[in-house]
Amino acid sequence: MNGERTFLLGLLGEHIMESLTPAMHEAEGRRQGLPLVYRALDPVELGLADVDWPQWLLTARDFGYDGLNVTHPAKQALMGVLDGLSDDAALLGAVNTVTFSGGRAFGENTDHIGFSGALDACGIDASAGNVVQIGAGGAGSAVAYALLKAGTPQVTLVDVDPSRARSLVERLSHAFDASRLRVIPPEEATAAVGAATGLVNCTPIGMDGVSDGSPIDLGALHPGLWVGDAVYRPLRTTLVRAAENLGCTAFGGAHMVVGQAVASFGMFTGRPASREAMYQAFLQGSGTPVPS
């Protein structure tokens, strides 16, 4: 291992023991000959109740961790104890990556980077036309931000809770022209998709254990539409399969998960990661046959 220092990393959250993130990071560390240990930190799995997420972050820092990925429900809960925030994390109001240096904890958000990477990996030009986005929660915030940064002329938000969508518009309007965002009720979504060039699902609909349905009437899909889905279990949701059957460019949440991992690996180690290698590690971990 060339006598290099060992990186100690972790994933902090609940119900994460089956996460593929530790395996992706450790596989990339091995590929680069970099000593790296990545652990899942799940206090709920240990039987603890009323978890103090900020204290867990501080304890990880004191134990010598170099960084943490953070997932539900800690993304907002620990922001108050951080020593600094990236502009992206401050705008999105959530942190999913924390790096430690000199006793200080710095928070970043790579969720939007993951989605941008998925667009790039699939050759999608998000600036080519308007996009309908179903869901305005945590994942939806990052996706809408990524779309606006990519130059999407207008992002149409659809959420069962209109106030959540309006709140997202208010937050993003601090960085982008508010006229590029609009909110419509769910009953208008089908017509909106018919006139759009892109569609993204940012809800759990289609996820294993939730439903095998689609967040939108599949009859609204049309050739020329590109489709993204934040769900990665299964790798190809009902929505993604239907879009592919029409000849649409479509991708699932695996590309987003890998993009986040690639970005955070670089933040933790100071080294660029191979997106392709980490994607192959994800496929292997998910039990999906890897093309030879």
Rank of each mutant, 00 (worst) to 15 (best):
T71L: 11
R271N: 04
G80W: 08
A126W: 14
G135S: 02
V155H: 13
I216H: 00
V258C: 00
V158G: 05
L239F: 04
N69Y: 12
A195C: 10
T203S: 10
A94S: 13
L11I: 08
M17L: 11
E28W: 04
L36I: 08
A74E: 05
V143K: 12
E28L: 07
P153Q: 00
M17A: 11
R233C: 01
A189S: 12
A128C: 13
A49P: 07
L225N: 08
T238L: 04
Y145T: 07
Q55F: 10
G13K: 05
L91T: 13
L36R: 05
A192L: 07
G114N: 07
V193N: 11
T190F: 10
P291W: 13
D87M: 09
G67A: 12
V193R: 15
E244G: 09
S264Y: 15
G198R: 07
H72W: 09
L168E: 03
A142C: 12
E4F: 14
T110L: 14
N130Y: 10
Q55G: 09
G107H: 13
A23R: 15
H72N: 03
A60W: 14
G138T: 05
K75V: 10
A254N: 01
R31V: 07
R171T: 06
R182C: 02
R171A: 06
V44S: 11
G67D: 02
H25Y: 12
D42W: 14
E28N: 02
